[in-house]
């Protein structure tokens, strides 16, 4: 086995940037798809002497992977699930990292009249009343959890699933592609939407409701639960994100727009 391992590792040897210690981040997709990591990782790696690697999956999958010890830290956006993760002893602590907001996007002709709604819940009520198609992530991601919270008390989306309510079971990008393709409404984080290039005639129809606040958190995985993790590296990168990194995050712009708003100190 050890010979096989050595042979495979040689064959598969990665041209390591340097021989810096590796920190593996299990992350939500919006931070990767928007280009945030491409912006901040070179700065952080340089400052910390770390080889920081990001596996971008939905928040639900990221938490599951980290619970199986397949990552040193988490960057996700589903506060309740994150706090449960820490409470169960899988993470050392949860820190607020940054925020942006969710927006409701849909076809510009807006068949359900969402644009005139003065709150997110009102917007969703109109979609449900009109039974206009709505694309849901359906993948236990942070966005999906937020969306289910919003629907609570408005409509029984589980019952409507397969009708006007359509669960894609995929990432934000795939869900946006599908929503554009079928003229459906959907809930997306602003960063993914701004970086998304296949918008068709979809536009932001509802935004600004405090209920659409989207908080990102960072959690180092608990070495007491996962002895294999690089706890030192994870703490260093977490500390950097919460301190020096805040300004770097604020400096990430797309088409002149800031996508993430650091709030670690709040």
């Amino acid at each position: 086995m050890s010979i096989l391992r050595a042979a495979l590792l040689t064959l598969a040897a990665t041209p390591a940037l340097a021989n810096d210690p590796v920190v593996l981040v299990q992350s939500t997709t919006s931070t990767q798809n928007s280009g945030l990591y491409a912006h901040i990782l070179p700065v952080a790696s340089e400052a910390l002497g770390l080889d920081i690697r990001v596996v971008a999956v939905g928040t639900g999958q990221a938490l599951g992977n980290a619970q199986r010890c397949d990552g040193d830290m988490l960057i996700t956006h589903a506060r309740a699930a994150e706090e449960a993760f820490v409470a169960a002893g899988y993470g050392t602590a949860r820190h607020d990292l940054m925020y942006n907001d969710f927006v409701i996007v849909g076809p510009s002709d807006d068949p359900a009249g969402v644009a005139g709604a003065d709150s997110a819940t009102e917007a969703l009520s109109r979609i449900a009343a009109a039974e206009s198609p709505f694309a849901s992530r359906g993948d236990d991601s942070g966005t999906h959890q937020k969306e289910l919270n919003l629907w609570d008390g408005i409509a029984d989306v589980a019952a409507a699933s397969g009708g006007w309510y359509r669960e894609t079971g995929s990432g934000m990008g795939a869900t946006l592609n599908l929503a554009v393709g079928m003229g459906a409404y959907t809930l997306t984080d602003r960063a993914t939407w701004l970086a998304f290039e296949n918008r068709g005639d979809h536009v932001i129809l509802n935004q600004g409701d405090p209920a659409l606040f989207n908080q990102y958190g960072v959690i180092p995985v608990n070495p007491a639960h996962c002895p294999n993790v690089n706890a030192e590296g994870a703490r260093a990168f977490t500390d950097w994100l919460l301190e020096d990194g805040q300004a770097v995050i604020a400096g990430f712009m797309l088409d002149g727009e800031q996508l993430f708003f650091p709030n670690a100190g709040d």
């Binding site: 391992r5 495979l8 590792l9 598969a12 040897a13 690697r53 596996v55 199986r68 010890c69 397949d70």
Partner: peptide, 19 residues
């Protein structure tokens, strides 16, 4: 996976696991 039977090999998220 780190919690899987061959986690000690540390192949996950490397080209070796892909191979």
């Amino acid at each position: 996976s780190a919690s899987g039977p061959l986690g000690v090999l540390e192949f996950l998220y490397t080209p070796a696991a892909m191979i």
